[in-house]
Write a protein that binds this DNA or RNA. Structure first.
Lengths: 330, 330
DNA sequence: TTGTAGGCGTTATCAG
DNA sequence: CTGATAACGCCTACAA
C-alpha cells in the first residue's frame, strides 16, 4: 500500500542507499538528487515501516501496558501519566485492556511480548509462582503496579498497610466505636491477585489490635450490602464507620445509605481508598486515601526504562508516599 | 534475547524450514526430529517475532485506537467492547491515549500507521479539510466514532440531533418554562472537533423553534457556573431545566446546586448526554440520553474490519439508535 | 557523491 | 521427509 524506499529508488533511478541518505540524512547526496527524492517521498506520502526498522536494529521503542477493567477506573487514571512519561523518553505506549479474565491477561502479555515491546507494565490480576515463571520466561523487562507478583519482579506501590493503619487512626480519632473493613471477596485469595487489598487488610487488623476497645468486622463478599444493613441495624446506637478497600465500594454503600435516607457522616462514617477521579462529582466529599496513582505510574515508567537500559538489573520494590485525605464523610 | 527459528535449527542440526514445519505444522516431519525441535523450542521459550512475521506477509492483524482524555470517561467505556469485538475476529487492539492536544493526536495516528496497524479508530479531536487530507493520505482504513471529520471517512454515531430534539420534548412535557443548553466552549469551533455538540445544539435549536413559547438560552463556555447562577437567580420562579451536552457538565451543575442547598428536580431540572458509567454512583439518578457507546464501538470494529477486507470500499455514515433515559432529575 | 552486499526473523516456493 | 533460496522494508558497513 504505502510506498517503500525501494520504490522511491526505482522512481528516481538511484539506489536505496541514496534514498535513505536523502531521507534520514546520513552522508552527502547531490542537491538535485536529494530534492527529487524528497519530492517523490512527499508526493507519495512516504512513511517508514517501523516494523522493518525495528526488526533491523532490534529496538521498537515501545512499551506495553495491560490495564484491567476500565470501568473500575482504578489504574485508568495512570494511563495519561504513563503515556506522557514514556513519550518524554522517546517511547511509544501501547495499551491493551484486560476484562477481568486471568487467561486474557496472559494472552495479552504474550501478545505484547511477541510484538516486541521493550518493556511491559501490569497491574496484575494473576498471581502465584506459575504466573511468576511465565513472566520471567518472557525475558522482558516488566514492572508491576500495585499488585505484587513476586520479589523477582519490580513492583511500584504505596505502603498500603501503613495507609490502612493511618486510616484506622483517623477513624478512631473521630470517636467511632466500630470499624468495618469492606473489601473484595476473600475467597479468591490464591487464585486472583488481590495483593493490595490483603495489605490493607493486614494494616486494618494490626491497627485494630492497637485499638482493642473498638469493635471490628471484616466484610469480604461480592454482595456486601446485606452485611452492611445487618451491621447497622444490629446495633443502631453504636457509632460505626466503614473503611472500604476501594472507593467504588464506598460509593456503593453511600448510594445505598442515601436510599435509606441515612445521613453521612451522621448515621455512619465512610472512608475509601484510591481517590479515584469520579469523586470530584460526589458530595459530600468522600474521605479517602490517595494512593498516588500518578506518582506510581510515573515511577513505573522510569523504572521500566531503566530496566531496559541496564545490562545488570536487579528487581526492586519501590514504595511511594500515600496521603490521607480527611474530607467530609467521617 | 529470545531464541529464533534459526537458532533452533542450528541446535537441532536441521534447516529452519524443518523447524517451521514442526512448529507451525505445514508439511510432514520425522517424528523424532519434530519432538526434538518442539522440546528445544519449549525449553528456550520460543515465541515468534510478530514483527518479522508481519513484515513478511504484510499483515499485522492489529487495530489501533486513539482515545481522548481518559478522565472524561466518554469513549473509555467503549474500549472494552472494541477490544472484545476485535479479538473475536482475530485482531489485536492497541490503544493510545491522547491528552487533548491536536498535535498529539496526529502524532499518535501517524505512530499507529507507521507501526502498520491495519485500521484505526478515532474519536477525533482534530477537524477540517487539512486533517481530512492527513487521514486520507495515510491510505489506511479509518473509522471515526462520534465526531465526524468528513464524508470521505466512515463515521459511526447516533443521531445526535434527533436525540437532542427528543430530549427537549421530554423536558417540555414536564412543564418547564425555560430550557438552557449547556455545552463546551463554542469559540473552539473551527479549530477543535466538537461535531457531536454542534449536532446536539442544532437539535436543541430546532426543537426550541417548535416550542416557541418556552424561554431558551445556550451556555457554551469553560466557566459556565456563573451563568447558571445568573439564570437561576434572575428569574427564580421560572421553572428551568438544563440540558447538558455531556453528563459531566450535568454532574458539575448538580454538585454546584447541592452546595447551594438546592433540590433537583424541585429547584431546577437537569438532563445529561451519554450515560457515562459513573452515573451508577450518583443519586438522584440523572436523566440522560444513552448514546449507545457499546453499540457504536462494536459497529465501528465491524465496519473497520470490513473496510480492511474489501477491495472496493466506499465510506459510510452509520447511525445507531440512542435512547432517552427518563430518570429522576426532571 | 553513489552503489553493492548482507542481515534482522519469518514465511512461501520450489526442488531434491 | 528435508533443504535451498528469495522475499518483506529497512539499515549499516564497505567499496567504488
Amino acid at each position: 500500500m504505502a510506498i517503500t524506499v525501494n520504490q522511491i529508488a526505482q522512481k528516481c533511478g538511484v539506489s536505496r542507499t541514496t534514498v535513505l541518505r536523502a531521507l534520514n540524512g546520513g552522508g552527502s547526496v547531490k542537491k538535485e538528487t536529494k530534492e527529487k527524492i524528497l519530492q517523490v517521498a512527499e508526493e507519495n506520502n512516504y512513511r517508514p515501516n517501523l516494523l522493518a526498522r525495528s526488526l533491523n536494529h532490534g529496538r521498537t521503542m515501545s512499551l506495553g501496558v495491560v490495564t484491567i477493567n476500565i470501568e473500575n477506573m482504578y489504574f485508568v487514571q495512570s494511563l495519561n501519566t504513563i503515556n506522557k512519561e514514556a513519550d518524554k523518553r522517546g517511547y511509544f505506549t501501547n495499551i491493551v485492556v484486560c476484562d477481568e479474565s486471568l487467561e486474557w491477561e496472559r494472552k495479552l502479555i504474550r501478545g505484547l511480548a511477541e510484538r516486541q515491546m521493550e518493556g511491559i507494565m501490569i497491574n496484575p490480576l494473576n498471581q502465584g509462582s506459575e504466573f511468576e515463571e511465565f513472566l520471567l520466561s518472557l525475558h522482558i523487562p516488566i514492572v508491576c503496579i500495585g499488585n505484587q507478583v513476586s520479589e523477582k519482579i519490580t513492583t511500584v506501590q504505596v505502603n498500603e498497610m501503613a495507609a490502612a493503619m493511618d486510616a484506622v487512626e483517623l477513624i478512631a480519632s473521630k470517636r467511632y466505636e466500630q470499624i468495618v473493613f469492606v473489601c473484595p471477596p476473600l475467597e479468591v485469595q490464591g487464585q486472583q491477585n488481590i495483593y493490595v487489598h490483603e495489605q490493607r487488610l493486614k494494616g486494618f487488623k494490626a491497627a485494630m489490635g492497637i485499638h482493642c476497645g473498638l469493635h471490628s468486622e471484616v466484610v469480604g463478599k461480592k454482595e456486601f450490602l446485606p452485611d452492611i444493613e445487618r451491621i447497622l441495624s444490629g446495633n443502631p446506637e453504636r457509632r460505626t464507620a466503614f473503611l472500604c478497600s476501594g472507593d467504588s465500594y464506598a460509593l456503593t454503600i453511600k448510594q445505598w445509605g442515601e436510599k435509606k435516607n441515612m445521613k453521612i457522616p451522621e448515621d455512619f462514617g465512610l472512608m475509601g481508598f484510591d481517590d479515584i477521579s469520579v469523586l470530584q462529582y460526589i458530595s459530600p466529599k468522600l474521605t479517602t486515601v490517595s494512593t498516588n496513582l500518578e506518582g506510581v505510574a510515573a515511577a513505573a515508567v522510569v523504572e521500566l526504562i531503566q530496566q531496559i537500559d541496564s545490562e545488570e538489573y536487579s528487581p526492586k520494590s519501590i514504595i511511594l508516599n500515600y496521603k490521607i485525605l480527611d474530607r467530609d464523610t467521617l
